[in-house]
């Protein structure tokens, strides 16, 4: 058997059998083929172009916190569909689909844990759950995160990734902006550090509330961050948007954020900042 024949079975006719669907994907930026195992090892950053792909909230927190002593806060809160909302599809059905797809209850995961031994509370939005949209559940879980941070005098780190307020819960969703902003204010009054990490994308009602209220504002490279969606802005002003509009680098230049940090460096950098703020 030649070397070619030895390799061929695995990349030839049996390839499909050996690499089941979902084991690889393509980088949306440079189209490089990315293998699942490689992606997980690299925290979903493309090894070729450094593009930061969307990462699930659970994996994000698992990687960010120390492996041991992770404890999830309020894992069972669920939406009750207060408006019985229906468009072409019922919200209830969309919700169940999202739960099946992500294996999460809603779009925010909150955990207590350690960061290099430092007790902290960490929250992460799951963009794959209805675009990380904020409804009653996300608002309530964020408040619980803040409560826990205040109660134990721990810092709170929140990774946002959201299209904004969840329109299927109508004004209940809009009011989560007030609710979460109050939660941040109550932390501030108790001098609890709040670090907001803006990841791709952070828009609308989430951007215009908790995500923009960090004591320290960190963004991942090239994340889309803003209030109105780029398409809406383009249609409103009827002109071409400036280069890099609403990207992290643009926000840094405009003075909206403190720094841009590579995903692989977030643990170190946030630990360093919190230590400098005299949190042990």
């Amino acid at each position: 058997m030649s070397w070619l024949e030895k390799i061929l079975p695995s990349i030839g006719k049996n390839a499909k059998k050996n690499i089941p669907e979902g084991l690889w994907s393509k980088c949306p930026e440079c189209s490089r083929v990315l293998y699942q195992e490689e992606l997980e090892r690299l925290s979903y950053v493309c090894p070729k172009c450094d593009h930061h792909l969307i990462i699930s909230a659970r994996r994000r927190l698992k990687n960010f916190l120390d492996v041991e002593h992770q404890f999830e806060i309020a894992p069972n809160i669920q939406s009750v569909d207060p408006l019985k909302f229906k468009d072409q599809k019922k919200y209830k059905d969309r919700y169940i689909d999202a739960q099946k797809k992500t294996k999460e209850k809603d779009a925010l995961i909150v955990k207590k844990g350690l960061l290099k031994g430092m007790p902290i509370v960490a929250a992460a939005f799951d963009f794959n759950f209805m675009g990380g949209s904020m409804g009653s559940v996300v608002g309530e879980k964020f408040v619980r995160a803040a409560d826990s941070a205040i109660e134990n005098s721990n810092p709170l780190v929140c990774f946002s990734a959201s299209g904004g307020a969840r329109m299927q819960e109508g004004l209940f969703s809009l009011m989560q902006m007030s609710k979460t902003s109050l939660a941040v204010k109550l932390m501030a009054d108790k001098k609890i550090p709040f670090i907001s990490v803006l990841t791709d994308p952070t828009m609308g009602g989430v951007s215009a509330s908790l995500a923009m209220l960090g004591d320290i504002q960190i963004a991942e490279p090239k994340a889309r961050i803003g209030f109105a969606g780029a398409r809406v802005v383009e249609q409103t002003v009827n002109e071409k948007l400036p280069e890099g509009f609403q990207r992290s680098e643009f926000l840094l230049e405009k003075g909206a954020i403190d720094m841009i940090v590579h995903r692989s460096e977030l643990r170190n950098k946030i630990f360093q900042i919190l230590s400098a703020l005299n949190y042990k």
């Binding site: 215009a208 209220l213 803003g226 802005v233 609403q246």
Partner: peptide, 17 residues
């Protein structure tokens, strides 16, 4: 809130928040 380029540049989200 106004969805314009300048509004975004000057931090529409931050102003509301």
């Amino acid at each position: 809130a106004y969805p314009g380029i300048g509004a975004e540049e000057r931090g529409q989200s931050e102003a509301i928040a």
